[in-house]
Design a protein around this nucleic acid. Structure first.
Lengths: 278, 278
DNA sequence: CAGTGGTCTAGACCACACT
DNA sequence: GTGTGGTCTAGACCACTGC
């Protein structure tokens, strides 16, 4: 058994004289020995959430796998099942875990998912995403280079660090619709080649998960209307003055660590970017 | 006391011989008398959620007001506090209610809110929304007219029904940045005039709440990059070929009833549309 | 101080899935 | 059947708010 990093109930426990059978061993209740841990005064279920998150980061459970049952986790962390449930509920709400009744709770994955592209909001004006069939992907370019100051800042690197850059074109029903420039930090993605990218079928983020253990968890996008430069216009087969939707996305792994910068140019003559507000 | 529209636990209750003090009066447990209610076989807390929603629609509690405490609601619906809690949790997650510890649970409102514009995703490229100060609003136009087929479809009306149309320009720090055309159904918004609109200070949706009892709960947006026509370019003070972000928003009240169609043109040279994905 | 929402527990029963 | 998550209850205690 491993010693868990001190779970504390919101007030430092002091032999609280529980009325009913108090199962947590009362001996493991330290008073004020704060071993560095900065934000330690949070609800129990938040602490459990943090521990589960940690296990996810460290790869104890891999994408697509089941995690232990709520009952087992409760025993492991020495809390009630209800507390684990609340922690898991939040992680499920954040799309890090997926509950499946009768089967268990699974680590979310970009592969084998309901929707092919979890972060792609572009939709055809008529018909559904499915009706237009899978996109055709063409990698125009892929190379290793030194990060500019701007790219470095976005990826949390130093200017001059190695980054991978790729450019690809997505076609729907043969029509070039999305042109993307992608930047990845060289370290975590060492060994990624153009061939690897073009050979892989399925979402790019699934490849990152499977081959490099990098799981994208969250993303921020900034949208603008822009005009293409000459190369972009040619690739997308539009006129020079045609307005395009620019989508700059930063994707993050656990702990808000940025792992990808992506600049997309979307044609919005046959598609639109859909957003739901509430 | 009012007879509540039959709450049923997932299996039709049949004198379940509860082990401990079973508080719900066993007499009020109908077997199979389904009085029309179509989707009645849902978890209790969902039914409670539905009932609370109904009270919100019917204006039993108005925006900004407190609703009864969880304990009171539990008594009223004859369920446990925990069940009410779960119902309220979901409504709070959907931004229909706002919990405030120690004070109570409140009906959400577009006025007196943390953020001025709940549905506006445009942000300045540098600085924060607050640092640029409040927008200057100019109503360019406001008139009553007959709905075109397209507008009617979006608002759930018949072509030819009366709609209100308004056009306004928002300036940030003096720079015209957003040009919006707004269509509202004539019925619910009878009596809305250009003067009423320009005199009101604060979010437009707050006015709708306060003056017309119409509360916007959710919205869908479709984004595109477009070029302005002549009038639009003039108002926004941009060149004819300048790309602009087109944002078509449909806003809904309770029960997914569309209540507003809005077409915005955003300048994205100094601002960007921000979206968070997870 | 009383009242509210927030956390935590414990236990019962149900729906679902796999075997 | 066994085990999983899903629902529901009941009760204890806490933290925050306002009287």
């Amino acid at each position: 058994m491993i010693a868990w990093p001190l779970l504390v109930k919101t007030p430092p426990p002091m032999a609280t004289a529980a009325p009913s059978p108090a199962p947590p061993d009362t001996s493991s209740a330290p008073q004020t020995s704060w071993a560095g841990q900065a934000p330690s005064f949070s609800p129990l279920y938040q602490q459990i959430k943090g521990l589960i998150l940690q296990s996810l980061q460290q790869g104890e459970w891999k994408p697509g796998e089941v995690i232990p049952s709520e009952f087992d986790l409760a025993a492991r962390f020495k809390v009630s099942q209800g507390t684990v449930r609340k922690a898991v509920d939040e992680l499920a709400a954040e799309n890090l875990l997926v509950r499946r009744q009768g089967r268990g709770t699974f680590v979310a994955t970009h592969a084998e998912q309901q929707v092919q592209y979890r972060f792609l909001r572009l939709q055809p004006d008529s018909g559904t995403v499915d009706s237009e069939g899978p996109a055709q992907r063409d990698f125009v370019d892929c190379r290793r280079q030194r990060a500019t100051a701007e790219i470095a800042r976005a990826l949390g690197l130093r200017a001059g660090d190695t980054v991978l850059q790729a450019r690809r074109l997505l076609r729907f029903a043969g029509v070039p619709t999305i042109l993307e420039d992608i930047w990845l930090p060289g370290g975590p993605f060492k060994g990624l080649t153009a061939e690897r990218l073009s050979q892989y079928h399925g979402p790019m983020y699934a490849l990152f998960e499977a081959e490099f253990g990098v799981r994208m968890v969250r993303a921020d996008e900034k949208l603008r209307a822009v005009l293409p430069d000459e190369a972009q216009a040619t690739l997308l087969e539009v006129a020079a003055g045609a307005p395009l939707l620019s989508v700059e996305r930063t994707a993050y792994t656990y702990n808000d660590v940025p792992m990808e910068l992506r600049r997309g140019l979307y044609r919005t003559d046959t598609h639109h970017y859909r957003n739901q507000l509430n």
